[in-house]
Simulated assay, not measured.
Amino acid sequence: MRDDRFHSRLEQLLSDADVRVDGDRAWDMQVCDDRLPARVLLGGSLALGEAYMDGWWDAGSLDGLLFRLLDAGIDRKVHGFADLRIAVLARLFNLQRGQRSYAVGERHYDIGNDLYAAMLGRRLVYSCGYWRDSGDLDAAQEAKLDLCCRKLGLRPGMRLLDIGCGWGEMLKFAAERYGASGVGITISREQAAFASLLCDGLPVEIRVQDYRELGERFDRIVSIGMFEHVGVKNYETYFDVARRCLADDGLFLLHSIGGNTSRTHTDPWIAKYIFPNSMLPSAAQLTRALEGRFVIEDWHNFGADYDRTLQVWRDNVEAAWPLLSERYDERFRRMWRYYLAGSMASFRARLIQLWQLVLSPSGVLGGYVAPR
Protein backbone atom coordinates (compact mmCIF):
# COMPACT_ATOMS: atom_id res chain seq x y z
CA MET A 1 0.00 0.00 0.00
CA ARG A 2 1.29 3.44 -0.93
CA ASP A 3 2.17 5.84 1.91
CA ASP A 4 1.88 9.39 0.58
CA ARG A 5 4.13 10.81 3.29
CA PHE A 6 7.10 8.70 2.18
CA HIS A 7 6.22 9.20 -1.47
CA SER A 8 6.23 13.01 -1.12
CA ARG A 9 9.50 12.97 0.79
CA LEU A 10 11.18 10.81 -1.85
CA GLU A 11 9.90 13.04 -4.64
CA GLN A 12 11.32 16.10 -2.87
CA LEU A 13 14.73 14.51 -2.35
CA LEU A 14 14.91 13.40 -5.97
CA SER A 15 13.82 16.80 -7.24
CA ASP A 16 16.80 18.35 -5.43
CA ALA A 17 18.94 16.23 -7.80
CA ASP A 18 16.81 16.98 -10.88
CA VAL A 19 15.38 13.46 -10.88
CA ARG A 20 11.63 12.88 -11.27
CA VAL A 21 9.56 9.89 -10.20
CA ASP A 22 8.17 8.19 -13.30
CA GLY A 23 9.50 10.98 -15.52
CA ASP A 24 10.32 10.64 -19.20
CA ARG A 25 14.04 11.46 -19.11
CA ALA A 26 16.65 8.70 -19.21
CA TRP A 27 17.86 9.44 -15.67
CA ASP A 28 14.40 9.63 -14.07
CA MET A 29 13.40 6.93 -11.57
CA GLN A 30 10.70 4.50 -12.64
CA VAL A 31 9.00 3.18 -9.51
CA CYS A 32 7.80 -0.42 -9.92
CA ASP A 33 6.64 -1.05 -6.36
CA ASP A 34 4.69 1.41 -4.17
CA ARG A 35 6.62 0.23 -1.10
CA LEU A 36 9.86 1.71 -2.50
CA PRO A 37 9.76 5.19 -0.85
CA ALA A 38 9.42 3.81 2.69
CA ARG A 39 12.07 1.16 2.07
CA VAL A 40 14.63 3.65 0.76
CA LEU A 41 13.96 6.45 3.26
CA LEU A 42 14.20 4.06 6.22
CA GLY A 43 17.04 1.92 4.87
CA GLY A 44 19.41 4.38 3.19
CA SER A 45 21.93 3.40 0.52
CA LEU A 46 21.74 -0.32 1.31
CA ALA A 47 17.99 -0.30 0.73
CA LEU A 48 18.31 1.70 -2.48
CA GLY A 49 20.70 -0.86 -3.98
CA GLU A 50 18.77 -3.88 -2.75
CA ALA A 51 15.49 -2.43 -4.05
CA TYR A 52 17.09 -2.05 -7.47
CA MET A 53 18.30 -5.66 -7.34
CA ASP A 54 14.75 -6.75 -6.44
CA GLY A 55 13.27 -4.85 -9.40
CA TRP A 56 11.41 -2.28 -7.29
CA TRP A 57 12.74 0.59 -9.42
CA ASP A 58 14.61 1.20 -12.65
CA ALA A 59 16.07 3.92 -14.85
CA GLY A 60 16.99 4.13 -18.51
CA SER A 61 20.34 5.62 -17.50
CA LEU A 62 21.21 4.12 -14.14
CA ASP A 63 24.60 5.83 -13.96
CA GLY A 64 22.95 9.13 -14.95
CA LEU A 65 20.48 8.86 -12.08
CA LEU A 66 23.08 7.84 -9.49
CA PHE A 67 25.44 10.59 -10.66
CA ARG A 68 22.76 13.21 -10.03
CA LEU A 69 22.01 11.83 -6.58
CA LEU A 70 25.68 11.86 -5.59
CA ASP A 71 26.44 15.20 -7.20
CA ALA A 72 23.58 16.79 -5.25
CA GLY A 73 24.67 15.15 -1.98
CA ILE A 74 21.43 13.19 -1.54
CA ASP A 75 23.41 10.27 -0.10
CA ARG A 76 24.33 12.46 2.88
CA LYS A 77 20.67 13.16 3.68
CA VAL A 78 19.40 9.58 4.03
CA HIS A 79 20.95 7.05 6.41
CA GLY A 80 19.79 3.62 7.47
CA PHE A 81 20.68 1.28 10.33
CA ALA A 82 23.22 -0.48 8.11
CA ASP A 83 25.28 2.72 7.88
CA LEU A 84 25.52 2.91 11.67
CA ARG A 85 26.23 -0.81 12.04
CA ILE A 86 29.17 -0.85 9.63
CA ALA A 87 30.63 2.30 11.19
CA VAL A 88 30.54 0.71 14.66
CA LEU A 89 32.06 -2.55 13.42
CA ALA A 90 34.90 -0.68 11.70
CA ARG A 91 35.62 1.25 14.88
CA LEU A 92 35.57 -1.79 17.18
CA PHE A 93 37.30 -4.40 15.01
CA ASN A 94 40.17 -4.68 12.55
CA LEU A 95 38.08 -5.91 9.62
CA GLN A 96 41.07 -6.65 7.39
CA ARG A 97 43.09 -9.00 9.62
CA GLY A 98 43.19 -12.78 9.86
CA GLN A 99 40.56 -14.69 7.93
CA ARG A 100 38.67 -11.46 7.24
CA SER A 101 41.48 -10.42 4.88
CA TYR A 102 40.59 -13.36 2.62
CA ALA A 103 36.85 -12.62 2.48
CA VAL A 104 37.05 -10.28 -0.51
CA GLY A 105 38.97 -12.89 -2.48
CA GLU A 106 36.41 -15.59 -1.78
CA ARG A 107 33.31 -13.42 -2.30
CA HIS A 108 34.42 -11.17 -5.14
CA TYR A 109 37.53 -12.20 -7.04
CA ASP A 110 36.62 -15.89 -6.98
CA ILE A 111 33.12 -15.32 -8.44
CA GLY A 112 34.23 -16.71 -11.79
CA ASN A 113 36.96 -16.00 -14.31
CA ASP A 114 34.35 -16.19 -17.09
CA LEU A 115 32.68 -13.00 -15.83
CA TYR A 116 35.95 -11.10 -15.58
CA ALA A 117 37.20 -12.39 -18.94
CA ALA A 118 34.01 -11.10 -20.56
CA MET A 119 34.17 -7.76 -18.78
CA LEU A 120 37.82 -6.74 -18.72
CA GLY A 121 38.90 -7.20 -22.35
CA ARG A 122 41.93 -8.89 -23.83
CA ARG A 123 44.04 -8.27 -20.74
CA LEU A 124 42.45 -9.19 -17.41
CA VAL A 125 43.35 -5.94 -15.69
CA TYR A 126 40.75 -5.03 -13.06
CA SER A 127 41.73 -1.40 -12.56
CA CYS A 128 41.55 1.95 -14.33
CA GLY A 129 42.87 2.20 -17.88
CA TYR A 130 45.08 5.11 -18.95
CA TRP A 131 43.18 6.81 -21.78
CA ARG A 132 45.49 9.77 -22.47
CA ASP A 133 46.53 8.50 -25.94
CA SER A 134 44.30 5.41 -26.15
CA GLY A 135 41.20 4.81 -28.21
CA ASP A 136 39.95 1.54 -26.75
CA LEU A 137 40.07 -0.43 -23.50
CA ASP A 138 42.84 -2.85 -24.49
CA ALA A 139 45.10 0.01 -25.55
CA ALA A 140 44.28 1.94 -22.36
CA GLN A 141 45.20 -1.03 -20.17
CA GLU A 142 48.47 -1.64 -22.02
CA ALA A 143 49.25 2.08 -21.67
CA LYS A 144 48.59 1.83 -17.92
CA LEU A 145 50.88 -1.19 -17.51
CA ASP A 146 53.59 0.52 -19.52
CA LEU A 147 53.16 3.72 -17.48
CA CYS A 148 53.72 1.71 -14.30
CA CYS A 149 56.89 0.14 -15.69
CA ARG A 150 58.23 3.51 -16.83
CA LYS A 151 57.47 5.15 -13.50
CA LEU A 152 59.34 2.33 -11.76
CA GLY A 153 62.29 2.62 -14.12
CA LEU A 154 62.23 -1.13 -14.72
CA ARG A 155 65.30 -2.62 -16.39
CA PRO A 156 66.33 -6.15 -17.41
CA GLY A 157 67.37 -8.25 -14.44
CA MET A 158 65.37 -6.32 -11.85
CA ARG A 159 63.19 -8.27 -9.43
CA LEU A 160 59.62 -6.96 -9.06
CA LEU A 161 57.09 -7.66 -6.29
CA ASP A 162 53.42 -7.25 -7.20
CA ILE A 163 51.25 -6.96 -4.07
CA GLY A 164 47.77 -8.01 -5.14
CA CYS A 165 48.79 -9.32 -8.57
CA GLY A 166 45.29 -10.14 -9.83
CA TRP A 167 45.37 -12.37 -12.89
CA GLY A 168 49.09 -11.74 -13.45
CA GLU A 169 49.02 -9.25 -16.33
CA MET A 170 51.38 -6.72 -14.73
CA LEU A 171 54.09 -9.29 -14.06
CA LYS A 172 53.69 -10.82 -17.51
CA PHE A 173 54.00 -7.39 -19.12
CA ALA A 174 57.04 -6.48 -17.00
CA ALA A 175 58.78 -9.76 -17.83
CA GLU A 176 58.08 -9.68 -21.58
CA ARG A 177 58.55 -5.98 -22.26
CA TYR A 178 61.14 -4.98 -19.64
CA GLY A 179 63.04 -8.19 -18.85
CA ALA A 180 62.12 -8.23 -15.16
CA SER A 181 61.54 -11.27 -12.97
CA GLY A 182 59.03 -11.20 -10.19
CA VAL A 183 56.75 -12.51 -7.47
CA GLY A 184 53.02 -11.87 -7.35
CA ILE A 185 50.83 -12.41 -4.31
CA THR A 186 47.04 -12.59 -4.17
CA ILE A 187 44.42 -13.77 -1.68
CA SER A 188 42.30 -15.23 -4.51
CA ARG A 189 42.90 -18.86 -5.43
CA GLU A 190 41.08 -18.39 -8.74
CA GLN A 191 43.35 -15.50 -9.65
CA ALA A 192 46.47 -17.37 -8.57
CA ALA A 193 45.65 -20.40 -10.70
CA PHE A 194 44.97 -18.25 -13.75
CA ALA A 195 48.08 -16.07 -13.21
CA SER A 196 50.32 -19.11 -12.88
CA LEU A 197 49.16 -20.39 -16.26
CA LEU A 198 49.40 -16.94 -17.84
CA CYS A 199 52.99 -16.50 -16.68
CA ASP A 200 54.08 -20.07 -17.39
CA GLY A 201 57.57 -20.07 -18.90
CA LEU A 202 58.38 -16.61 -17.56
CA PRO A 203 60.59 -15.86 -14.51
CA VAL A 204 57.48 -15.21 -12.42
CA GLU A 205 56.21 -16.87 -9.23
CA ILE A 206 52.58 -16.55 -8.12
CA ARG A 207 51.57 -17.16 -4.50
CA VAL A 208 48.36 -17.19 -2.47
CA GLN A 209 49.70 -15.14 0.41
CA ASP A 210 48.81 -12.29 2.77
CA TYR A 211 51.09 -9.29 2.31
CA ARG A 212 52.01 -9.36 6.02
CA GLU A 213 53.87 -12.64 5.46
CA LEU A 214 56.37 -11.09 3.01
CA GLY A 215 60.00 -10.76 3.99
CA GLU A 216 62.41 -10.98 1.03
CA ARG A 217 63.89 -7.99 -0.82
CA PHE A 218 63.00 -6.66 -4.27
CA ASP A 219 64.35 -3.95 -6.57
CA ARG A 220 60.88 -2.61 -7.25
CA ILE A 221 57.37 -3.01 -5.81
CA VAL A 222 54.03 -2.37 -7.49
CA SER A 223 50.52 -2.65 -6.07
CA ILE A 224 47.56 -1.98 -8.38
CA GLY A 225 44.03 -1.86 -7.00
CA MET A 226 44.79 -3.78 -3.82
CA PHE A 227 45.25 -1.00 -1.24
CA GLU A 228 41.49 -0.43 -1.10
CA HIS A 229 41.28 -3.69 0.88
CA VAL A 230 44.00 -2.90 3.45
CA GLY A 231 42.00 -0.76 5.90
CA VAL A 232 43.17 2.30 7.82
CA LYS A 233 44.12 0.26 10.91
CA ASN A 234 46.67 -1.61 8.80
CA TYR A 235 48.19 1.19 6.70
CA GLU A 236 51.29 1.55 8.82
CA THR A 237 51.83 -2.23 8.83
CA TYR A 238 51.36 -2.34 5.06
CA PHE A 239 53.98 0.34 4.45
CA ASP A 240 56.34 -1.24 7.00
CA VAL A 241 56.14 -4.49 5.01
CA ALA A 242 56.75 -2.65 1.74
CA ARG A 243 59.73 -0.83 3.24
CA ARG A 244 61.41 -3.98 4.54
CA CYS A 245 60.90 -5.67 1.16
CA LEU A 246 62.25 -2.79 -0.94
CA ALA A 247 65.90 -2.25 -1.78
CA ASP A 248 67.38 0.94 -0.35
CA ASP A 249 67.59 2.46 -3.83
CA GLY A 250 64.27 0.98 -4.96
CA LEU A 251 60.92 2.47 -5.98
CA PHE A 252 57.39 1.54 -4.99
CA LEU A 253 54.38 2.37 -7.18
CA LEU A 254 51.04 2.43 -5.34
CA HIS A 255 47.93 2.55 -7.55
CA SER A 256 44.73 3.03 -5.55
CA ILE A 257 41.28 4.55 -5.62
CA GLY A 258 41.09 7.32 -3.04
CA GLY A 259 38.36 9.33 -1.36
CA ASN A 260 38.08 13.08 -0.82
CA THR A 261 37.33 12.67 2.88
CA SER A 262 38.72 10.41 5.59
CA ARG A 263 36.51 7.44 6.48
CA THR A 264 36.94 4.11 8.27
CA HIS A 265 34.54 1.98 6.21
CA THR A 266 32.81 1.74 2.87
CA ASP A 267 29.19 2.11 1.76
CA PRO A 268 27.06 -0.66 3.34
CA TRP A 269 25.73 -1.91 -0.02
CA ILE A 270 29.26 -2.20 -1.42
CA ALA A 271 30.41 -3.95 1.76
CA LYS A 272 27.58 -6.48 1.64
CA TYR A 273 27.53 -7.33 -2.05
CA ILE A 274 30.81 -6.32 -3.71
CA PHE A 275 33.88 -5.63 -1.55
CA PRO A 276 33.53 -6.89 2.03
CA ASN A 277 35.74 -5.16 4.60
CA SER A 278 36.99 -2.59 2.08
CA MET A 279 37.53 1.17 2.42
CA LEU A 280 39.04 3.94 0.33
CA PRO A 281 41.98 5.89 1.74
CA SER A 282 42.03 9.66 1.87
CA ALA A 283 45.08 11.75 1.09
CA ALA A 284 45.41 12.60 4.78
CA GLN A 285 45.30 8.95 5.84
CA LEU A 286 47.92 8.04 3.26
CA THR A 287 50.35 10.79 4.18
CA ARG A 288 50.05 10.03 7.90
CA ALA A 289 50.92 6.38 7.27
CA LEU A 290 53.76 7.25 4.90
CA GLU A 291 55.40 9.72 7.27
CA GLY A 292 58.81 8.46 8.35
CA ARG A 293 58.59 5.48 6.00
CA PHE A 294 58.73 6.77 2.42
CA VAL A 295 59.40 9.89 0.40
CA ILE A 296 56.56 10.77 -2.00
CA GLU A 297 58.29 11.30 -5.35
CA ASP A 298 55.12 11.69 -7.44
CA TRP A 299 51.34 11.82 -6.95
CA HIS A 300 49.35 11.41 -10.18
CA ASN A 301 45.53 11.61 -10.32
CA PHE A 302 43.76 10.30 -13.42
CA GLY A 303 40.46 9.41 -11.77
CA ALA A 304 38.38 10.83 -14.63
CA ASP A 305 39.67 7.93 -16.75
CA TYR A 306 37.86 5.45 -14.51
CA ASP A 307 34.40 6.56 -15.64
CA ARG A 308 35.32 5.71 -19.23
CA THR A 309 36.87 2.37 -18.18
CA LEU A 310 33.74 1.41 -16.25
CA GLN A 311 31.47 2.29 -19.16
CA VAL A 312 33.34 -0.17 -21.38
CA TRP A 313 33.21 -2.85 -18.67
CA ARG A 314 29.44 -2.39 -18.41
CA ASP A 315 29.00 -2.61 -22.18
CA ASN A 316 31.14 -5.76 -22.28
CA VAL A 317 29.07 -7.48 -19.59
CA GLU A 318 25.79 -6.56 -21.24
CA ALA A 319 27.01 -7.84 -24.62
CA ALA A 320 28.18 -11.12 -23.05
CA TRP A 321 25.05 -11.68 -20.95
CA PRO A 322 23.43 -14.29 -23.23
CA LEU A 323 26.36 -16.59 -22.35
CA LEU A 324 26.88 -15.40 -18.78
CA SER A 325 23.20 -15.96 -17.94
CA GLU A 326 23.86 -19.71 -17.93
CA ARG A 327 25.76 -19.21 -14.64
CA TYR A 328 24.48 -15.93 -13.20
CA ASP A 329 20.84 -15.10 -12.50
CA GLU A 330 18.95 -11.87 -13.20
CA ARG A 331 19.36 -10.58 -9.64
CA PHE A 332 23.13 -10.95 -9.97
CA ARG A 333 22.97 -9.08 -13.28
CA ARG A 334 21.14 -6.17 -11.64
CA MET A 335 23.58 -6.23 -8.72
CA TRP A 336 26.56 -6.06 -11.06
CA ARG A 337 24.92 -3.36 -13.18
CA TYR A 338 24.25 -1.28 -10.05
CA TYR A 339 27.85 -1.73 -8.86
CA LEU A 340 29.34 -0.53 -12.15
CA ALA A 341 26.86 2.33 -12.52
CA GLY A 342 27.43 3.51 -8.95
CA SER A 343 31.19 3.46 -9.51
CA MET A 344 30.81 5.49 -12.72
CA ALA A 345 28.66 8.00 -10.87
CA SER A 346 31.16 8.38 -8.02
CA PHE A 347 34.09 9.07 -10.36
CA ARG A 348 31.99 11.34 -12.60
CA ALA A 349 30.97 13.42 -9.57
CA ARG A 350 34.70 13.53 -8.61
CA LEU A 351 33.87 12.17 -5.16
CA ILE A 352 36.53 9.50 -5.56
CA GLN A 353 39.85 9.57 -7.41
CA LEU A 354 42.44 7.27 -8.93
CA TRP A 355 45.91 7.91 -7.58
CA GLN A 356 49.32 6.60 -8.55
CA LEU A 357 52.02 7.39 -6.00
CA VAL A 358 55.71 6.75 -6.61
CA LEU A 359 57.53 6.25 -3.32
CA SER A 360 61.21 5.88 -2.43
CA PRO A 361 62.82 4.91 0.89
CA SER A 362 65.00 8.01 1.27
CA GLY A 363 64.48 10.20 -1.80
CA VAL A 364 65.94 9.77 -5.29
CA LEU A 365 69.35 11.45 -5.51
CA GLY A 366 69.14 14.39 -7.87
CA GLY A 367 65.33 14.15 -7.98
CA TYR A 368 62.74 11.96 -9.65
CA VAL A 369 61.36 12.79 -13.11
CA ALA A 370 57.80 11.50 -13.41
CA PRO A 371 56.77 9.93 -16.74
CA ARG A 372 53.28 10.64 -18.07
Score class of each variant (00 low, 15 high):
G259C: 13
G259D: 12
T266D: 11
L254W: 02
D248A: 14
A283T: 14
I270C: 12
A284Y: 03
P276N: 05
W269K: 06
N260C: 09
G292D: 07
S282F: 00
S282G: 09
F275C: 03
Y273A: 02
R288D: 13
G258S: 15
P268Y: 03
S256H: 11
P276H: 06
D267S: 04
T287S: 13
Q285V: 03
T266G: 11
H255Q: 11
K272S: 15
R293S: 05
M279P: 02
I257R: 07
R244L: 11
H265M: 10
A283K: 12
P281M: 01
G250T: 03
P268F: 05
A284C: 03
I270V: 15
V295D: 08
C245G: 06
Q285G: 14
N277V: 08
L286W: 06
L290M: 06
R243V: 11
T264C: 10
I274T: 05
P276Y: 05
I270S: 13
L246I: 09
M279V: 00
G292K: 07
Y273I: 08
R293Y: 07
R293W: 08
R263I: 14
A289V: 01
R263H: 11
A247T: 12
N260Q: 13
I270M: 15
T287F: 09
N260P: 07
Q285S: 15
R263E: 15
T261W: 14
I257E: 10
N277F: 14
R244C: 14
F252Y: 06
S262M: 14
F294R: 09
S282W: 01
E291R: 14
T261C: 10
H265P: 03
S262N: 04
G259V: 01
L251N: 00
D248L: 10
L280T: 00
Y273K: 12
L246G: 01
T287Y: 12
K272H: 14
G259N: 12
L254C: 06
A289L: 04
G292S: 10
C245Q: 13
P268V: 06
A283N: 05
L254T: 05
R293M: 13
S262R: 14
A283H: 11
L286F: 11
K272D: 07
K272M: 13
S262C: 09
L290E: 04
G259P: 02
I270P: 11
D249A: 07
L280Q: 00
H265C: 15
N260L: 14
D248M: 10
N260E: 15
H265Q: 14
R243H: 12
H255F: 08
H265D: 04
H265V: 13
F252N: 01
D267R: 02
S282H: 02
I257C: 11
F252I: 00
Y273Q: 07
L251D: 00
F275T: 02
D248Q: 12
Y273E: 07
T266P: 00
